[in-house]
């Protein structure tokens, strides 16, 4: 266990440094949320009940999700392309810990997209942005990050399962913006899509963050949302373990750990 923790934290540190120079990740964490925040601010500010913090939270969620989605679905493959996957598999620590560490790095990195969206609202548009229930928001923020990160850990082994799976994952960026209700209520969606929304951790992350920032979510309802986030995180972490074993076994059988 201690060994796995060390692998986890070493990967987090390495990956944070890596992402800081990766243009694509910078794009996901900064540029895209910036543009989304600006565009959506312009689109929504006519609303009578417009609250800029809604756009800040929603755009930040888009940034966090994009980082997790791409980081997650490419986590193993990027190692394969670099030729380091064999070294990771050949090392005594588990690949699970390494990849989870990588995603933790991604999460830490994507937190900055929250700060950036805030800056867009505050400086560019001159809004005063107020989080109504700060302690609850802080709790929701941490739980939301863990829940979305856990989903990334589950996505990671899927990313090398098959090329078609990876292609499917790549186009999941905007659908989760939509189904997660990041920047509009999911009630706008056709009814048959709602069960899908409710089954997605990002949706609950959005409920928790929007709800606590506007102050509309508190008490038992808030506790319930927190419980859902925790349970979904746990479910992802648990489900990921056999998946990792499966894909690694398969890669060793098929000889696909390296490119040649």
């Amino acid at each position: 266990m201690r060994r796995e923790l060390r692998a986890f934290s070493a990967s987090t540190r390495l990956w944070l440094r890596y992402m800081a120079v990766d243009r694509f990740m910078l794009f996901c964490a900064f540029v895209q949320p910036f543009f989304i925040a600006v565009t959506v601010m312009y689109m929504l500010h006519h609303q009578p009940q417009f609250d800029p913090v809604y756009v800040v939270v929603g755009s930040a969620l888009t940034g966090i999700w994009s980082v997790v989605l791409f980081d997650g679905s490419w986590a193993i493959n990027s190692e394969r392309f670099q030729g380091t996957l064999e070294l990771l598999v050949g090392a005594p620590s588990s690949l699970y810990a390494v990849i989870a560490g990588k995603l933790a790095g991604g999460m830490a990195f994507s937190v900055t997209s929250m700060a950036l969206s805030y800056a867009v609202g505050a400086w560019l548009f001159g809004y005063s942005i107020v989080v109504r229930d700060v302690p609850a928001f802080a709790v929701a923020f941490v739980l939301a990050l863990i829940a979305i990160g856990a989903l990334g850990v589950l996505i990671a082994p899927l990313g090398i399962l098959a090329r078609s799976v990876r292609q499917f994952l790549t186009v999941l960026e905007h659908p989760i913006y939509i189904l997660g209700g990041f920047l509009f209520p999911v009630l706008l969606l056709p009814g048959w899509l709602l069960p899908i929304s409710y089954a997605l951790p990002p949706y609950w992350a959005a409920v928790a963050l929007h709800g606590t920032s506007s102050g509309e979510l508190s008490g038992v309802a808030f506790a319930e949302v927190c419980a859902v986030l925790l349970l979904s995180s746990l479910a992802c972490f648990v489900l990921a373990a056999p998946l990792f074993r499966l894909v690694l076994r398969r890669a060793r059988v098929e000889g696909t750990l390296s490119l040649t």
Binding site: M43, V171, H174, F184
Partner: peptide, 29 residues
């Protein structure tokens, strides 16, 4: 990519992006 996968990726991305902005517009534009 397999041809099917290519078409899927090529079509899906712009369409969901369209849906996203259209829904934001529907919400409060």
């Amino acid at each position: 990519l397999s041809p099917g996968g290519y078409i899927f990726q090529k079509m899906a991305f712009p369409l969901v992006q369209l849906a996203f902005f259209a829904l934001v517009g529907a919400f409060g534009g």
